[in-house]
Amino acid sequence: MSKKLYVKQTNGTAVGCNIYTTAAEAGDKALTVRADGVAGYVALKPITDSNATAGRVSIGGATYAIATQHTAAVTVPYTEQQWTKAGSYTFTVPDGVSRVRVAVCGGGAGKGSTRANGGNGGDTMAFGVTATGGKGGGVAWSKGAGGEPNGYASSGNSMTNGFAVSFVKSYGGYGGGGQYGGSGGYDSQYVTVTTGHTYTLTVGKAGGKNGVNGFILLGYGGDVQNG
């Protein structure tokens, strides 16, 4: 249909919305309108959709946005990314992704001794999920605490276990602490994200000798999106 429904945005600009000849063309949900006496259909989308306008329609207690057009859902294959070097990074959420799975591990504390504490490990942060660094120990035989959550406290004059790069907590080398130093913490969560938004990620560094950097593991697409 060549006609359009115009919706005035909050900035005063009128935006044209496609009117489809059948409800199926407009997608899963549609607003019925009449143009020159002929029934037509305008796509309704979640208010966060990239095609959403300022127009709103309530259906069964749920609020939808009148959309400029209907576009088919983007299918994103399951993808994993990981960061294991200490530092700051950025990640821009791809089209079709609104949910991710993330595991974070803080940096392990450095080696301590009876004369000096080992340095504390750095915190790891991604998508609002944080694992703190391990605490250095050593002076007067003190044993450093593990990072939060789930970190391992030092058992004394031996290396402290870290974590594998995995969404399930398991032993591995990352985030491990040096002698008398605690490991970094570890956490794994599903997180709702905003399509197209750029997030800052930080991998915590080791606190010193024999400590190990933390990591970030990210999964998105596939079953993560709707799981």
Rank of each mutant, 00 (worst) to 15 (best):
A65E: 07
F91Y: 02
I66Y: 09
G40Q: 02
S158M: 05
S98Y: 00
G12W: 04
V15Y: 10
S154Q: 08
P77Q: 05
S170G: 11
A24N: 05
S98A: 03
H197W: 01
K143Y: 11
Y174D: 09
P149L: 09
D223T: 10
R101S: 03
G136M: 06
Y220G: 00
Y20S: 10
Y174G: 07
Y41S: 06
G137M: 04
G16Y: 07
Y152A: 12
Y199P: 02
K205M: 15
R115T: 15
G172R: 12
V15M: 06
W83E: 04
V42N: 01
A116P: 00
A54H: 00
T90M: 04
A131C: 14
V193D: 01
L31K: 01
T195D: 10
K8S: 08
I66H: 03
G151T: 15
G122Y: 01
G37Y: 00
W83S: 10
Q69C: 07
G112A: 10
T53K: 05
E148R: 11
A26I: 08
N18E: 07
A43N: 03
A73Y: 12
G106M: 08
N18A: 12
G119F: 07
G176F: 02
P46A: 02
V168I: 11
V97I: 06
V100E: 02
G110Y: 00
T132R: 01
A116R: 00
L44A: 01
N51L: 09
V139D: 06
